[in-house]
Every structure is written in structure tokens, then in C-alpha cells.
Design a protein around this nucleic acid. Structure first.
Lengths: 138, 138
DNA sequence: AAATATTTTGCAACAGTGTTGCATTTAATA
DNA sequence: TATTAAATGCAACACTGTTGCAAAATATTT
């Protein structure tokens, strides 16, 4: 449980029960979570606004990153060490159309891509939709 | 101007001024447009709801496709011929962090990507963020 | 050209998502 | 334990997107 406090401290954040619970939710559920998912998971414990602010803070500090799919915005833990200064995310997000879960493929990398003249890329975001191993098995 | 009517007819849609104006906006502006962009461009001519429904219809008929970036949802013309039955989009979307515009790189293709065992991909969506040629030049 | 059937539109109302200001409470520090 | 600074809860609001229904417009038939 002190793991949570350490992570928060490591990112220069005060320890609060809300932050511990949100962080804990991200660690337990493996897949990306939306604000609504968190509201559901944490019940009535915290105000909606507090959860929004917690997500915003976690984003800024590099604890989580945004994950986009056609249904909207979700968040997932940063596996690589990210900080306020530097976010590094060139891995792939996979959304299963069967179970609806989105997660990060940790050991994947987006290959080099030849862009037309003049385009200067800074960050890459690849979402693949399809069927995940668990749903393929059924 | 009959171009518009033809396109609509080709997708089995009735010709209405709203549909013509929305389609026209997509053709004139080259970049991806959000619902809000269209509301701005079309002024008070049409009800918000009508624009939402027009976008939904265009999506279903394969006239436009969704483009996701970190700010939310936009739409862009399908360059390849899409229909109600089949959407085919493996091109790349580029968002310029300087001018804020997102567009499709028409001659680009997402390369083959090796997924971990068991994942069955169906569709790919790659967003690259950076600086576009026009903004690099400045 | 007028009548009909069908689709589309505008309006009202609503649900969901996200933000801001401010007073109160809580966490860290001295 | 007292002080300081940050985080929370509440109220209010703006934005985004959806649904039901009556009125209007389109395409079709006569």
C-alpha cells in the first residue's frame, strides 16, 4: 500500500485518499479507464470534479497518458517513466470491439514511417481495433 | 454545383441545402472539421441537431470518416470510395501543433505491424502530431 | 401540376462531459 | 500543535451529443 504513496511522492504530489484510490484503480484494472469508469469504480466516495482534477494532475505529472478511441477519451498508466517535463509514448493501443476494453501493448513499437516532404513529426499515436486474445478464444 | 447533388445521390441521399453546405465545407476546407467548426462555418443557417444528424448520415454512408486527436473528434472526407457496406481507411492523420489543423496524408500507408500472439486486428488509426510544412516554413 | 408518401428539419428537452470560483477541509512543515 | 499551502466539495455553468415529435421539404405517383 505504501507503493502508492511512493509513486505519488515520486511525482511531487501530496498523498490523498482520492489520489491513492484513483492510482490503485489504474493499477488493478489493466485496461484504460475513462472518467466515467472511475466514477463507477469509486462509487460515491469523491466528487466528480475531484476525479477530473486528479486525472488532470496525473496527466501533467506523467503518471498517466491519454488513450483515444472512437468512443472518446480514456487514460492509462505510463509504463515508461514519464515526468512533468517529458512524456514518451510510442507504443500501440489496442481496442477490442468484442469486450470493449482498450489497453497498451507494452512491448510494441510504432515502426519508422516515411512522411511527405516538410512534415516534422513529434509524437505518434496508433490505435488498432479488432479482437483481443481473450475474446478470440471464445 | 451539381457535383454535390451527384455525390449525395451516389450515396442514396436526398438533396437538401444543409447536406450540400456541409459537403461543400468539407470540400473547400481541406482539413478535418469538428461539429463546432461546421456550426461556425455555416452560421445560423441550420439547427445544431441537423448538423449532428447530417454528420451521422454522412458517416454511415461512407462520405466522411472519423478523425481522432487529443482535442476530440473531427471528420474528414473519404478519399477512397467508401460505401455503407465498406469503409477502408489505412492512411495517416497528421495534426499540426502550431496551426491546430488536422488532415489526412493521402498517399501514406500504415506499415505492417507485428502484434503479440492472439491479437486479431481489424482497423488501424494512426495520428502523428508535429509541425506541418506551412508552419515549418515560418 | 397536384396529391401522396417518405424523409428531413427545427424545436424542446434532456443526459453526459468537462470547467471555474470560492469557501472549507486536509496534508505537510515548522 | 500551530501555520501554510494545497486539495476537496459544492454550486453553477458551458459544451457536446441524443431523442421524440410536429412541421416542412423532397421525391414519387397520378
Amino acid at each position: 500500500m505504501d507503493q502508492l504513496r511512493e509513486t505519488l511522492k515520486g511525482h511531487h504530489l501530496r498523498t490523498t485518499t482520492c489520489r491513492e484510490d484513483v492510482l490503485s484503480a489504474f493499477i488493478n484494472k489493466k485496461n484504460a479507464l475513462s472518467h466515467g469508469d472511475l466514477e463507477g469504480a469509486l462509487g460515491e466516495s469523491y466528487d466528480r470534479v475531484t476525479i477530473y482534477r486528479t486525472l488532470k494532475t496525473f496527466l501533467e505529472k506523467g503518471i498517466i497518458h491519454k488513450v483515444l478511441d472512437d468512443e472518446g477519451l480514456r487514460y492509462a498508466l505510463c509504463s515508461q517513466q514519464c515526468s512533468e517535463e517529458k512524456h514518451q509514448h510510442d507504443h500501440i493501443h489496442f481496442k477490442c470491439n468484442a469486450c470493449g476494453k482498450t489497453n497498451c501493448l507494452e512491448n510494441s513499437h510504432i515502426p519508422n514511417i516515411a512522411l511527405p516532404q516538410g512534415y516534422q513529426p513529434a509524437s505518434f499515436n496508433l490505435l488498432i481495433q479488432g479482437t483481443c486474445p481473450e475474446c478470440v478464444a471464445e
